[in-house]
Design a protein around this nucleic acid. Structure first.
Lengths: 201, 201
DNA sequence: GTCTATACACGGATAGAC
DNA sequence: GTCTATCCGTGTATAGAC
C-alpha cells in the first residue's frame, strides 16, 4: 500500500509502550509486556531506546502536551471569560474521552518521589492566561468575585476527576463502559451550567 | 511509661507500611524500604504478614474506610441538602488535609488491572443516601434541578482533586507546603459557595 | 535490524541459628 | 520474636549470531 500503511518498528514500539505505560504506570510496567504487545523481542526495545527510563520519558513528553493543551484558538480576545471556560470544558472532556487513561498517568508520574524533573515539563502559561481573562471580566462587572485559582482548579478537577474515578463511578452507578461514555457526554453541558451559575452576577 | 507508649513490632510495621505504600503505591514499594523505615529486618515483615500482598491489603482496608467515611452525623433528617453537602465538604477537606496521600493511593489501587477485588471493598450507600436527600429537597422546591450523580461527583472531585494535583498546583502558583495548606484551608468556604450558587433556586 | 542466549541485579520469600 | 544467610523467580540490559 501507500506510505501511510508502513508502520516502522519504532512506531510499533511507541504505540505498545504508550498503551502499557498509560495503563500500568512506570513501575507497574514490564519491558516484556511492551515487547509482547508490539509483537517483537525485548532486545529490540533496548536497541531503539536504550533503557526503560528513556522510553518512558519519550512517552511522557508526548502525553504531557495533551494534558495541558495550547488552546490558542480559545483565547479569543472578543470572548468572555465564561465563554472561554465553556469552550475549554467542551474540548477537554472530548479530549479525555479519547484518552481516558491520560489523567491518572500524568498525575501518578508527577507525584513520583525523586523525579521532580517531570514537573519541569509542565507549561505554566495556561493558568496565568485564564486569570488575566477573569480579571478583565471582573473589572467589567461581567463575573462575580471569586478566588480565580480556586475556580480554575475546580473546573479542571470537574473535567478530569471522573476519568480517574471511573471504576468507582461504574461500580456505584452500575454502569458499563458504554453507559460511562454517555455519562461523560452529558457532563459537558452540566459543568458548563455550573460555571454560569457560579460566575454570572 | 504507660501502656500507651508501648509500640509493638506489629504496630511499627503497619506504620511504616502505611507511609511507604501511600507514597509509592503497591508496585513502587519495596519490602526493604518498609523494613528500613520500621527499623527492623525484612524477614520480620514476612513473619507478621506472610506476604507483601497481605500487608498491602491490610493497609488498603484501613484506608478505604477513611476515603468513604460513614458520616451518620451528617445525615440529619432535619438538615437541608445544601447543609448536608456543606458539612461534607468541610469535614472531607479537613480529613484530606490530615491524609494528603489518601486520594491518590485509593485511586491508583482501584485502577489496578486484574485486581477488581479491591473495588468490592467500596461502600455504595453514600451516593444513594445523598441522592435521597436531593430528591426530597427537589420536591420541596428547595433546590434547582440537576443530574444528582453529576453534582455529587463534582463535589467529590472538587474536594479530592487538588490533593492529587498538589505538585502541579505548587509549581503553577509558586507555593510551598505551608502555602498549599493555606490554599486548602480557604477552599472549604469557596466550594461551599459554589454549591449554594449552583443549587439555590 | 532482528533474533536467542545470557549476564546481573533486585526483590520477595524462606531456612535456620539464637 | 528477631536476626543472618540464602534461595529463587523476575526484570533490565547486553553480547553475539544471523
Amino acid at each position: 500500500m501507500s506510505k501511510i500503511d508502513t508502520i516502522t518498528t519504532e512506531e510499533k514500539i511507541l504505540a505498545a509502550a504508550e498503551e502499557i505505560f498509560l495503563r500500568d504506570g512506570y513501575s507497574g510496567s514490564r519491558m516484556q509486556d511492551i515487547a509482547d504487545l508490539a509483537g517483537m523481542n525485548k532486545a529490540l526495545l533496548h536497541y531503539y531506546f536504550r533503557s526503560k527510563d528513556k522510553l518512558f520519558e519519550y512517552i511522557f513528553d508526548k502525553k504531557i502536551s495533551l494534558m495541558f493543551p495550547k488552546m490558542e484558538e480559545l483565547f479569543d480576545e472578543n470572548a468572555s471569560f465564561i465563554e472561554i471556560l465553556s469552550g475549554f470544558i467542551e474540548n477537554y472532556i472530548k479530549l479525555l474521552m479519547a484518552n481516558p487513561f491520560l489523567p491518572l498517568f500524568v498525575i501518578t508520574t508527577i507525584n513520583k518521589p525523586d523525579r521532580e524533573d517531570f514537573l519541569e515539563k509542565l507549561p505554566i502559561f495556561l493558568k496565568r492566561r485564564l486569570i488575566e481573562f477573569y480579571q478583565r471580566d471582573l473589572a467589567l462587572g461581567k463575573v462575580r468575585e471569586h478566588h480565580p485559582a480556586q475556580l480554575i482548579i475546580s473546573v479542571f478537577g470537574m473535567c478530569v476527576f471522573p476519568f480517574m474515578a471511573k471504576p468507582i463511578l461504574k461500580k456505584m452507578s452500575n454502569m458499563n463502559d458504554e453507559e460511562f461514555q454517555e455519562f461523560m457526554q452529558k457532563r459537558t453541558p452540566e459543568v458548563q451550567g455550573y460555571i454560569k451559575l457560579i460566575l454570572e452576577p
